[in-house]
């Protein structure tokens, strides 16, 4: 492998097998001798570590900037309150108070304060943890409980990927800020779905999202069952390619429940992920 390649694995709906696909993909890539990094951007509920079982070597706390008001200098003019779009700073009488958890760290209040009363300090929102799982480099983010601001942490995770590697990004579920932060700038997005009405509905939303972002993408159907063509029909209508169909297999579900990779439990599954890796690389480098 020469230049780096970032492949994000996403799905509108949670629990469709995003982590299964990304962890198995990263492992077959490493076994094929590639320099690969598994990147867990599902910082609210990071699960990849349960399957890859990495040794964590480094932990770095991540902070977002929040204002700190010097009461000596503050004249209670209210300009900070007026610029803040998130009601994170308020002027009550002659006192200014901040609501740090609502602050997006835009820096507007500090810039606007006429008396230089505002400085910034860091507020911890979570941590980036790095290590290795055999030949797979491993990075994950872990959001602190009670914390709403996941995007800055996701950005920090994304920027910790070693250079020139194949980065497999496990994105959070949904279609709003966290997943967008995770997939933005990726070369290719794999959308994982399952052939159920919920799965297909959420796949539609995920396709709209990646189209909006303008990232090349294709679908992987997980827990595919013979005779059920919901996913094929839908992808046909939307003109999106299906790169792989991974059959529904109770043994794989049980392996998953124990935290084992699909193909270590059922060796025949290795081929699905090897083929998927080949197609993804081909598609992404087009």
């Amino acid at each position: 492998m020469t230049a780096g390649l970032t492949v994000a694995v996403a799905s509108g709906k949670g629990g469709t097998g995003k982590t299964t696909v990304s962890a198995n993909l990263a492992c077959v890539a490493a076994e094929a001798g590639k320099k690969v990094c598994y990147v867990d951007c599902d910082v609210e509920e990071p699960n990849g570590h349960l399957f890859l079982k990495p040794g964590l070597e480094r932990r770095r706390k991540v902070y977002v900037p929040v204002p700190s008001v010097d009461v000596e200098k503050c004249t209670a003019c209210g300009a900070c309150r007026d610029i803040c779009q998130y009601s994170a700073i308020a002027a009550i009488g002659s006192e200014v108070i901040t609501f740090e958890k609502m602050c997006h760290g835009c820096g507007g209040c500090r810039l606007v304060c006429p008396s230089g009363a505002i400085t910034e300090r860091g507020r911890e929102v979570g941590a980036v943890e790095e290590g290795r799982a055999g030949r797979v480099a491993f990075v994950q983010g872990r959001l602190n409980v009670g914390e709403a601001m996941s995007p800055p942490l996701i950005k920090a995770v994304r920027s910790s990927v070693p250079e020139n590697s194949l980065a497999v990004v496990d994105a959070p579920p949904g279609t709003s800020c966290p997943v967008i932060t995770a997939v933005r700038g990726a070369d290719f997005v794999i959308l994982v779905t399952e052939p159920t009405p919920f799965g297909i509905n959420d796949l539609g939303l995920a396709i709209d999202m990646v189209k909006e972002l303008g990232i090349p993408h294709a679908v992987v159907v997980n827990r595919s069952v013979p005779g059920n063509s919901l996913a094929e029909d839908f992808c046909g209508q939307r003109g999106v390619r299906i790169l792989a169909e991974i059959p529904d297999d109770r043994r794989v579900a049980e392996a998953y429940s124990r935290g084992e990779l699909a193909y270590s439990a059922v060796p025949a599954f290795r081929e699905y992920f090897e083929d998927l890796l080949t197609s993804v690389e081909k598609e992404a480098r087009r």
């Binding site: 949670g14 629990g15 599902d42 609210e44 509920e45 959001l143 409980v145 009670g146 914390e147 709403a148 601001m149 996941s150 959070p172 579920p173 949904g174 709003s176 966290p178 998953y256 429940s257 124990r258 935290g259």
Partner: peptide, 24 residues
């Protein structure tokens, strides 16, 4: 799903949360 902003907005001040989990 998750524990972030929309979840916090969904549960603050509610009478109860029912957590649905699976044995994995």
């Amino acid at each position: 799903p998750g524990i972030g902003c929309p979840v916090i907005a969904s549960i603050t001040g509610a009478d109860a949360v029912l957590i649905v989990t699976e044995p994995t």
